[in-house]
Design a protein around this nucleic acid. Structure first.
Length: 601
RNA sequence: GGGGGUGUAGCUCAGUGGUUAGAGUGCCUGCCUGUCACGCAGGAAGCCGCGGGUUCAAGUCCCGUCAUCCCCGCCA
């Protein structure tokens, strides 16, 4: 008889009773009574209990007792119904077991660095160790489930886009460095030392060129590379659904973003969504939530209490308002019970984002108390409480600052913190919303110039073009984000396809004709040969999967992630290279203490 | 670039400046015929991240350093 399986472990049910089967898989766990041994055999479909009884198969008992976890075996045996009372309802195969008649060890496993069969312990195991032994970590059913869900999500996307007439087209990974945006990963060019390719931060220019090429509907499951600081939702390389369409309006793009998102969520989860996705303008989002990616799973919107604050002779409020700032508040339900120490901690929380302090009004059982009560009358506190719809037991948190963006930033983070503490950020829902009408440009005070909010090819709303000389900050762009549970899920824009408008935007951004030619000459030339109106978006697939799987860290949804600042402990990359390789590339390593140390190791 | 946390047995962790550094789990050995977190008994297993310093005495205190986790800046 061949060693090859006739059926997979997880597929066995009572209907197979009496059949002789061959199984292949890994020994998950051995429970031995000496003369009676139970082996849980695992493959990617599930677990099956194998029984070796010395009374029936004395020739197997020694081998069965010496099986090690994670050893790969082939076994032949008969499927039988479990004895009454010994069924295991936790296993899908728990009504049956296989009585082994032959066991062949295909590859014995040595002792593992961690115990795969203990899911509880695996949740605690050091991240670097798990990534170093990722091929073991991925054997766990929960990790296989992640790979499977990710595969399904991408397949749904491909099928959906195909049905809508989109072509999936690959674009180069070895490409050109772009000075804007994130730091590039560079690849030295051997044939002319001093020149470099760069890995793409996104296939942005290629997809626009495909529109010029008349493709009209492009998509790609695209790998993107950005050399930026590590975060729990960032990796040096990540995957986007990248889309571009021609002869469309913003409305067409939003519709597609919404439909494809809904298709994925419904296909792989039971999570609830509000449909159609609510929309906020950038200004509305900033006003109500203090940021451009509002978590709309809960209310607690920010209230501008500037009018009341202007009647209070508290110098912090007065100075903020006099210098063009704001006084805004957010409600903390149940926050009146916070201790003095907890309030201090909340104040420190606000200070780390730039607030000078935190003013509070609490509505406790003994009436209203406030950190600013000595500056104001009871009716002024009552007016603040009323505007914030505060009830008995609540706390109103007030931030004042001469810089509106500081008020927005601090309160948006405080709002999320409050939402977290009050249990309002449940993962059972995927609350999407669109944020539209972003500013075209943002003033960069350090460089003293206007920077593109999205990128230099973003189309302004045409009726806003009149402000291009007088008040550029007022120009709104045909630029949109899709937000899910407070995280940016997707982002895109309608692009400029008109050279006059493009020239105006370039000059606004202070990009000279010479620079335009040097940096964007190829794409500008392309646009001069008949470019259709076009636009598109990109959805961050890893973050979408994180949301779908309730994972807090992006590593958990990638097969082979990096740890720390871009280190791969499995391959031990990055690593030093042969000096001959460097010489060939015309590169010379400038010695630093750190390089010397690592070479001495 | 900055802030905070962690680093002790294979894994997860405890450890008041003072005997021979412990626990759970895993591993090894023995016993066990209905377990499925099997049970019971025994055993092996440690550069206390690394380097300095303080001290009669450092896993513990101080300085530095490395790694990792989280955050701020950064991420058109």
């Amino acid at each position: 008889m061949s060693w090859q399986r006739t059926i997979e472990c997880g597929k066995l049910t009572l209907t197979h009773t009496g059949e002789k089967v061959v199984l292949n898989g890994w020994v998950n766990k051995v429970r031995t009574f000496g003369d009676l041994v139970f082996v849980d055999l695992r493959d990617r479909t599930g677990l099956i209990q194998v029984v070796i009884d010395n009374n029936d198969t004395p020739h197997l008992i020694a081998a069965a007792n010496s099986l090690k976890p994670e050893t790969v075996i082939s076994l032949m045996g008969e499927v039988r119904k479990r004895r009454a009372g010994t069924e295991n309802s936790k296993l899908s195969t728990g009504d049956v077991e296989v009585a082994a008649e032959k066991i062949e060890v295909l590859n014995e496993a040595k002792l593992l660095p961690f115990t795969l069969s203990d899911e509880e312990q695996m949740k605690q195991v050091d991240e670097t160790l798990r990534v170093k032994y990722r091929y073991l970590d991925l054997r766990r059913p929960s990790m296989y489930q992640m790979l499977s869900l990710r595969h399904k999500a991408v397949k749904i996307i491909r099928d959906y886009m195909d049905n809508q007439g989109f072509l999936e087209i690959e674009t180069p990974i070895i490409s050109k460095s772009t000075p804007e945006g994130a730091r590039d990963y560079l690849i030295p060019y051997r044939l002319q030392p001093g020149l470099f390719y760069a890995l793409p931060q996104a296939p942005q220019q290629y997809k626009q060129l495909l529109m010029v090429a008349g493709v009209e509907r492009y998509f790609q499951i695209a790998r993107c590379f950005r050399d930026e600081s590590q975060r729990s939702d960032r990796q040096p390389e990540f995957t986007q659904l990248d889309v571009e369409m021609s002869f469309i309006t913003q409305e067409d793009v939003l519709k597609l973003m919404e439909e494809v998102s809904i298709a994925v969520v419904n296909a792989v989860s039971d999570k609830k969504m509000t449909v159609p996705f609510p929309r906020f303008t950038y200004d509305e989002a900033m006003s109500l939530y203090g940021n451009d990616k509002p978590d709309i799973r809960f209310g607690l919107t920010l209230k501008d209490i500037g009018e009341i604050a202007s009647t209070i002779s508290f110098h912090v409020f007065a100075e903020a308002l006099a210098n063009g700032g704001q006084v805004k508040a957010v409600l903390y339900p149940g926050g009146a019970s916070l201790s003095r120490k907890e309030l201090d901690q909340l104040t420190d929380f606000c200070k780390q984002f730039g607030a000078g302090g935190l003013a509070t009004v609490s509505i406790g059982s003994e009436g209203m108390k406030s950190s600013i009560s000595r500056f104001c009358e009871a009716n002024q506190l009552a007016a603040i409480a009323e505007q914030c719809e505060a009830k008995q037991g609540d706390l109103v948190c007030i931030i004042a600052h001469a810089n509106k963006s500081v008020v927005a930033n601090v309160l948006s983070r405080l709002r999320l913190e409050i939402g977290q503490r009050c249990g309002l950020r449940s993962n059972d829902r995927m609350e999407f919303c669109f944020v539209i009408d972003f500013p075209l440009v943002q003033w960069n005070p350090d460089e003293k110039r206007w920077d593109a909010e999205h990128h230099p090819f973003t189309m302004p709303h045409e009726d806003n073009l009149q402000y291009i000389d007088s008040d550029p900050g007022k120009i709104r762009a045909q630029c949109y984000d899709l937000v899910c549970n407070g995280n940016e899920s997707a982002s895109g824009s309608i692009r400029i396809h008109n050279s006059e408008i493009q020239a105006k935007v370039f000059s606004l951004l202070g990009i000279s004709a010479a620079t335009q030619k040097e940096r964007f000459g190829h794409i500008l030339e392309a646009f001069s040969y008949g470019a259709p109106p076009h636009g598109g978006f990109a959805i961050g697939i890893d973050r979408l999967i994180m949301n779908l799987m309730d994972e807090q860290n992006i590593r958990e949804v990638m097969a082979f992630p990096k740890v720390g600042p871009g280190y791969d402990p499995l391959m031990d990359a990055p690593s030093s290279v042969d000096s001959a390789q460097l010489k060939e590339l015309g590169l010379e390593i400038v010695k630093t203490d750190r390089v010397n140390e690592s070479q001495n190791e």
